[in-house]
Design a protein around this nucleic acid. Structure first.
Length: 430
DNA sequence: TTTTGAGTTGTTCGA
DNA sequence: GTCGAACAACTCAAA
């Protein structure tokens, strides 16, 4: 008997580990743990918990139509998984690999525990096309520059193709049983804060013209696939095939960035808290609490920055172009530590992905791999002229921006820029 | 080992 | 209004 443990792969279609389990045996038990180690740190109306819950319900219903179901409970996976294994006489646990530092540690402990009970623990690659050790330089060390990494990645994909794991065709191999009901959100101490999350299928259509339109926040033409990739409700292989087929190279490159940052975090897990370029940790951040608060709530007096932050607070999403701007503004205009921004995004973004979030925050602060030069400071009014000329996006989120109620700029651009360059320079030359 | 060319997303200044 | 250079040198990848 095999227990299949769903984590960040909440779909029955084209799921590699699930497919392997269904191939290897009849009588697969699907399982999911609402991990208390993670949940207990989240606000009680966290929309991501609602999303996950909804997906588990969906899978449960799907499996019920095959006379099966999914076992799900809130708790510590380290005790729940072995308990379930004992209860069902399970001989092996299959799951898809997760590359984040917390997940790696958790899986190491679970593997030890299961092995000590004579139970196998097998992991599969599903979240990425290429895992952190599959795209390396000739000397065997990881790439720290995106462009050569992406070239090798693409060559490899062209040579090897993109596999497909049709797990959805084998659902008859699920164990016929009637598990308990899925605990409700309320039973787990949560309430539904679910925002309006676009369906995966319709968002794929947005890939057309991605390159031309993606930089204009008012057009709403980015893919919004982040949350689906985060929780695996869309297969990365399907998405890659699709982008490849329609020659959407710009979109494909964004997917490669995701894997680039994943392999960086895998090889350098300490960069969740320390700068990849250590000399950048000598910067004397101002870290002004009041200014940080203004940034968070979207009252800096720079309309495009404020629009972005308000969109984030209200919807759990922010347009990518604006993410770069608010990031640059926080680190450079306000001289607030990139970790503060990273933590705020982690709390608010529905599509939060640790590797991408840390990687991009370090990029914007200038301290990361392949980072923007530190003297590159986004100008919040130039960005409006270039990307929201008619103020459509600004009007949507900051309707009062031309009125007297709108706050004065928290810092003056030219001086803030000079102060930033001087502060960085000091840290980097002493 | 040494050398060479290149490196996500920008802004400002002066001609 | 447009264009190229400067911003400041540094690290990485590959030959």
């Amino acid at each position: 008997m095999i227990l299949y443990w769903f984590r960040r792969d909440l779909r029955e279609t084209d799921n590699s580990g699930f497919y392997q389990a269904l191939c290897d045996e009849k009588g697969i038990i699907p399982a999911f743990v609402f991990d208390q180690n993670i949940l207990n740190k989240l606000p009680k109306d966290d929309a991501r918990v609602g999303f996950i819950h909804q997906q588990i319900e969906r899978l449960h219903q799907k499996f019920t139509s095959y006379g099966s179901g999914i076992i799900a409970q809130k708790g510590d996976p380290l005790s729940l998984i072995p308990t379930w294994c004992k209860a069902f006489g399970v001989k092996a646990v299959y799951t898809n690999e997760d590359y984040e530092p917390y997940a790696r540690q958790r899986d190491r402990l679970i593997k030890e525990k299961l092995n000590s009970l004579g139970i196998k623990f097998k992991t599969f690659k599903d979240q990425v096309l290429y895992s952190p050790n599959e795209v390396l330089k000739k000397d065997g060390t990881p790439y720290k520059v995106y462009t050569p990494y992406s070239r090798v990645w693409i060559t490899k994909m062209d040579e090897q193709g993109v596999p497909n794991y049709p797990s959805e065709t084998l659902l008859d191999n699920l164990l016929k049983f009637a598990p308990n009901n899925i605990p409700s959100l309320e039973e787990m101490g949560f309430k539904n804060g679910l925002h309006n999350i676009p369906e995966g299928i319709t968002t794929i259509a947005m890939m057309n013209n991605y390159e031309e339109t993606r930089n204009f926040p008012a057009l709403n033409s980015t893919s919004r696939l982040g949350i689906h990739l985060r929780f695996g409700t869309i297969s990365i292989r399907k998405l890659i095939s699709r982008a490849k087929k329609s020659a959407e190279i710009t979109f494909l490159k964004e997917l490669i960035w995701r894997e680039f940052f994943m392999q960086i975090l895998w090889h350098y897990p300490h960069t969740t808290t320390t700068s990849f370029k250590p000399q950048y940790d000598r910067i004397s951040w101002r870290n002004n609490e009041e200014e940080f608060k203004k940034w968070c709530e979207g009252s800096t007096g720079y309309p495009l920055v404020d629009a972005g932050m308000r969109e984030l607070n209200k919807t759990g999403f922010m347009h990518n172009r604006v993410r770069m701007l608010v990031g640059s503004f926080l680190c450079k205009h306000l001289l607030i530590d990139w970790r503060w921004g990273e933590a705020y995004f982690a709390e608010k973004l529905l599509d939060y992905e640790q590797a991408s979030n840390v990687g991009n925050w370090q990029w914007v602060a200038g301290c990361g791999v392949d980072a923007a030069p530190y003297f590159r400071v986004f100008n919040p009014t130039e960005q409006v002229k270039k990307f929201d000329k008619n103020h459509e996006y600004i009007k949507k989120w900051v309707p009062e921006y031309q009125s007297l109620n709108y706050p004065a700029p928290v810092v003056e651009h030219t001086n803030a820029r000079k102060r930033c360059l001087a502060t960085y320079k000091e840290a980097l030359t002493t």
